[in-house]
């Protein structure tokens, strides 16, 4: 019995302390945010609570012969549509054409040799786990203008 009373008194005190602290925090936050800040993001300086401008509908491009690479060791861009290939724990739809076994039949480029090597430098017979989720590194392109100007120049 005594015990419970003690803890109750204790929680009561700490609650008041917490509340004061919170009020203070909120007040400072409000003070600092009062002058409207104008940080420009990719969506322009639209206020956050307005609807963003609708982006157009773009289609995935196919590029015969593949896209040019811009720097050494760049994961090449995907020059075809990929919406029908699923990558699940059980199956990897990309390997249907890009695996060691398939690439000749499908006339597709084979996955890079690096894709068979583990973190510890061991070469495996199958795709290394860290290369399994292809679209983590490889992406297709759509027919659209870049959102921001880009001055990057290709590495020689």
């Amino acid at each position: 019995m005594l015990n419970t009373k003690k803890t109750m008194a204790f929680t009561h005190k700490s609650l008041i302390r917490k509340l004061t602290l919170m009020t203070l925090l909120v007040l400072t936050a409000v003070m600092f945010s009062l002058p409207a800040m104008s940080v420009e993001s990719l969506r322009g300086d639209d206020p956050l609570n307005s609807h963003s401008v609708k982006v157009g509908k773009y289609k995935v491009k196919t590029e015969e012969g593949g896209y040019e690479r811009n720097f050494k060791k760049q994961p090449p861009l995907i020059p075809h549509k990929i919406d029908k290939y699923r990558i699940t724990l059980k199956n990897n739809g990309c390997l249907k054409c890009h695996s060691e076994k398939a690439y000749k039949k499908e006339d597709a480029p084979k996955v890079g040799d690096s894709h068979y090597i583990t973190r510890d430098g061991k070469t495996l017979k199958h795709i290394s786990r860290r290369r399994y989720f292809c679209v983590q590194c490889h992406i297709p392109q759509v027919d659209s203008d870049p959102l921001v100007e880009n001055t990057y120049e290709n590495e020689e």
């Binding site: 699923r86 059980k90 199956n91 390997l95 249907k96 054409c97 695996s99 076994k101 398939a102 039949k105």
Partner: peptide, 20 residues
């Protein structure tokens, strides 16, 4: 194969696709 459903686990379609 696998046009409408997921493929069975462990089955590699590359085993069966024909080659010119």
């Amino acid at each position: 194969k696998g046009i409408a459903h997921e493929l069975p686990e462990g089955y590699d379609p590359a085993d069966d696709t024909p080659e010119a």
